[in-house]
Amino acid sequence: MKIKVLLVLLAVCAGVALAAAPKMMSVQVESSKVREKPSRLSKAVGEVKYGDRVQPGALQNGWYPVTVNGVTGWLSESALSTKKIVMSSGANDVATGASDEEVAMAGKGFNQQVEDKMKADGKLDYTWVDKMSKFEPQEDEIVLFRAQGSLVGGGQ
């Protein structure tokens, strides 16, 4: 029985080690800035696009250290997915039948084509959705807004 206990312990340790090992991740947002420090208001030193693959280091407070195109910095956890995001159909992973848990197809399903049909059918008016989507303060404006308001949060 003691051997079985040891076996279980070994298996648990191996599982944890495997889960903690660095793995490839995909950018799951349209674009994201690589930051000099792990903060959304830190200087941008690079940019990644939807579907780009990165191999991050260990997660620290919501930020992954990355090196992309020779630039080292940080990417927000929220910008990355463990799923491989495939940008076009016919890629190998799709052909081999990888499951939805491993692979996601960009532009698949609920997409611009569906939105266009909703508009064409006269079901929804997106005028204000488009207007509000353009409300996007610049980062230096946000920094100034925070400074003027004496907001000195501890960050992430």
Partner: peptide, 11 residues
């Protein structure tokens, strides 16, 4: 995916 979520959110 966040992309699909985006289109649901807009609607």
């Amino acid at each position: 995916t966040p992309e699909q979520e985006h289109y649901v959110g807009r609607a």
